[in-house]
C-alpha cells in the first residue's frame, strides 16, 4: 500500500461540497504556481537567497486553512504553502524573496523566515521544531485563541517537540499539530534516523492522532473533527518534489497530490471549474511576479 492512501476513508471526498473542494484546490494552485514562477526567477538568477519549496506538499496547508480560521500560525522553514494557503500577502512574500525592505520580514528572513501579522502567522527564526514550543506557549498565553503548528518529520525528532506536545495535552491547550511528513531530513530517509513514528508517541500519551496521507479531503475531515477537541496531532505523509533547499530534483516523486486532486475533481464533474481556477490562479501569480521583478532593475 502506498503511503499516499494511508488512512483512507471510502467516499469521504463526496461528503464535501463542491465549493469546499474547489477552495482547497484553489489554495493548492496558489502555492504550486507561485513556486513554479519562483523557480523560474531563481533559475534566471533573480533570487539571491536560499529557497525552500513546498511543491508536492501543498494539499496539507490548503486543507487545514480551508477548515480553520483565526488561529495563530506557527510554521517553519518550508512555509510558502502555509503562508499562501492561509491568505498571506503574496506581494510581500515576493518582495521578501527579492530581499526588499517591503518584504514580509523586511528582507531579514528570506524564504525560511516569513510572517504575516494580518493572518496571525508568527515568524519562524529558522531552527526546526522550535516553532512547536512557541506555538504551545502562545496557546498557554492566549487560551481563547486556536493555534496551529506545522513542522516536518525531522523536526518531530527534536526532543523539545514531543515535550511541548505533552505540555499541550497536560494543559488541554488548543493547538493543532500538523506534521508534513515527507520522510526526508535533507536527503536522509526516516528509516535511517529512527525506528519509531511520532504518531505512535502522541497516541501513547492519549492525544487525538491521525496518521494519514496528504489527501486534502482526509486532512480537512480530521482538521474539522479535531478542531473541537484540541490538542490533536495530524501526521500527513507527503512527497517533497525538490531538494531540501533550492530547485534541484533527484527522482520523480512517488506521487503528486496536485495531479491526484485534479483527477478526483474531474471524477466529480468539476473539471471545468477546476481548470478555470487553475488558469486564473496561474495568471494571478504570474502578474504579481511580473509587477515586482522589474523593481530589481530599477525599472
Amino acid at each position: 500500500m502506498s503511503l499516499a492512501t494511508l488512512g483512507e476513508i471510502p467516499n469521504l471526498a463526496e461528503s464535501f461540497s463542491a465549493e469546499e473542494s474547489l477552495e482547497m484546490f484553489r489554495r493548492m494552485c496558489l502555492t504550486r504556481y507561485f513556486e513554479m514562477r519562483l523557480i523560474k526567477a531563481y533559475k534566471d538568477g533573480l533570487i539571491k537567497v536560499p529557497i525552500y519549496l513546498s511543491i508536492g506538499q501543498e494539499s496539507i496547508s490548503a486543507a487545514v486553512a480551508t477548515m480553520i480560521s483565526g488561529y495563530y500560525i506557527f510554521a517553519q522553514h518550508r512555509a510558502h504553502s502555509v503562508y499562501l494557503a492561509f491568505g498571506g500577502n503574496p506581494v510581500k512574500l515576493i518582495d521578501e524573496l527579492l530581499g526588499l525592505p517591503t518584504g514580509c520580514s523586511a528582507g531579514m528572513g528570506g524564504s525560511p523566515s516569513i510572517q504575516d501579522p494580518d493572518i496571525k502567522m508568527i515568524g519562524h527564526h529558522g531552527l526546526i521544531g522550535e516553532n512547536v514550543p512557541l506555538a504551545v506557549g502562545a496557546a498557554l498565553g492566549a487560551p481563547d485563541a486556536g493555534v496551529v503548528s506545522f513542522f516536518g518529520d525531522a523536526a518531530a525528532e527534536e526532543d523539545y517537540v514531543f515535550a511541548s506536545m505533552g505540555f499541550a495535552l497536560t494543559h488541554k491547550l488548543k493547538v493543532l499539530f500538523v506534521c508534513e511528513d515527507n520522510n526526508l531530513s535533507i536527503l536522509t530517509p526516516k528509516s535511517d534516523r529512527r525506528s519509531w513514528e511520532i504518531a505512535d508517541a502522541t497516541r501513547s500519551i492519549g492525544m487525538p492522532t491521525a496518521d494519514i496521507g496528504d489527501d486534502p479531503w482526509l486532512i480537512a475531515h480530521y482538521t474539522r473533527q479535531f478542531s473541537s477537541n484540541l490538542p490533536a496531532f495530524l501526521n500527513c505523509r507527503t512527497c517533497r518534489h525538490h531538494w531540501h533547499v533550492g530547485t534541484g530534483i533527484d527522482n520523480p516523486p512517488e506521487w503528486d497530490r496536485f495531479t491526484l486532486v485534479k483527477e478526483q475533481l474531474d471524477a466529480f464533474g468539476l473539471s471545468s471549474r477546476a481548470d478555470k481556477i487553475e488558469a486564473e490562479t496561474k495568471q494571478y501569480v504570474e502578474n504579481l511576479w511580473n509587477e515586482r521583478l522589474p523593481i530589481l532593475s530599477g525599472k
Binding site: 522550535e130 512557541l134 506555538a135 506557549g137
Partner: peptide, 13 residues
C-alpha cells in the same frame, strides 16, 4: 528546552 520555549511563546502573545 521546551519549557523556556513555551514561556517565550507566551511572551509572543
Amino acid at each position: 528546552v521546551a519549557g523556556p520555549g513555551i514561556a517565550v511563546g507566551a511572551a509572543v502573545v
